[in-house]
Computed example of a mutant assay.
Amino acid sequence: MAVSKIKIARVEKDLTQEDLAKIVGVTRQTISLIEAGKYNPTLKLCIEIAKALDKTLDDLFWQK
């Protein structure tokens, strides 16, 4: 599931939700909601998150 993939990638980069939020220009609450699967980010935000975590969109958001 995409939620855990984002959190795992964030923790692997040693980033807090606050750190990632600052990098991509949103609030920590937004990152929390995305990780919890309670908020669907825009494509633009998905791309920013993927860039910040050095992952592809497929790595983070593709559900198999």
Rank of each mutant, 00 (worst) to 15 (best):
Lys13Arg: 13
Thr56Ala: 05
Thr27Cys: 03
Asp14Ala: 07
Ile31Ala: 08
Asp19Phe: 04
Pro41Asn: 11
Arg10Asn: 02
Glu35Trp: 06
Phe61Trp: 10
Ala50Lys: 10
Glu48Pro: 00
Gln29Phe: 10
Ile8Phe: 03
Leu60Arg: 04
Asp19Ile: 01
Ala2Thr: 03
Ile49Gly: 04
Asp54Ser: 15
Asp54Phe: 14
Ala36Gly: 14
Val24Phe: 09
Glu18Ser: 13
Ile23Gly: 08
Ala9Tyr: 05
Asn40Gln: 15
Ala36Tyr: 04
Leu60Ile: 01
Ile49Thr: 08
Ala52Ser: 15
Ile34Pro: 04
Lys55Cys: 12
Ala50Val: 06
Met1Glu: 00
Glu35Leu: 05
Met1Ser: 12
Ile8Leu: 07
Lys51Met: 08
Thr30Cys: 10
Trp62Leu: 15
Glu48Thr: 02
Ile6Arg: 08
Ala52Gln: 08
Glu35Lys: 10
Lys44Gln: 14
Met1Phe: 05
Arg10Asp: 01
Glu48Asp: 14
Ala2Arg: 08
Gln17Phe: 01
Ile6Lys: 09
Gly37Asp: 11
Ile23Met: 12
Gln17Asn: 01
Val3Asp: 04
Ala9Asn: 10
Gln63Ala: 14
Ile47Cys: 07
Val26Arg: 13
Lys7Pro: 00
Thr42Ile: 11
Lys7His: 07
Ser4Phe: 04
Phe61Arg: 02
Lys64Val: 14
Asp54Thr: 04
Ile31Gly: 08
Cys46Ser: 15
Ile8Pro: 00
Phe61Leu: 01
Ala9Ser: 14
Lys13Glu: 02
Cys46Ile: 00
Val26Pro: 04
Pro41Ile: 11
Phe61Lys: 03
Ala50Glu: 09
Leu43Val: 15
Lys51Ala: 01
Ile6Gln: 00
Ile23Arg: 11
Arg28Asn: 05
Ala50Phe: 11
Arg10Phe: 00
Met1Lys: 09
Leu33Ile: 03
Leu60Cys: 02
Glu35Ile: 10
Lys22Glu: 05
Thr16Tyr: 03
Asp59Cys: 11
Ile23Cys: 04
Cys46His: 03
Ala50Leu: 11
Leu43Trp: 13
Thr56His: 10
Gln63Trp: 09
Ile34Tyr: 02
Ala52Asp: 09
Asp54Leu: 10
Asp59Tyr: 12
Ile49Gln: 01
Ile47Ser: 09
Asp14Arg: 04
Lys5Pro: 00
Val3His: 06
Asp58Gly: 15
Gly25Leu: 08
Ser32Gln: 12
Lys22Tyr: 09
Lys5Met: 02
Asp59Ser: 11
Asp19Ala: 09
Leu57Glu: 06
Lys7Tyr: 03
Lys5Ala: 07
Gln17Met: 12
Glu18Cys: 07
Leu33Lys: 13
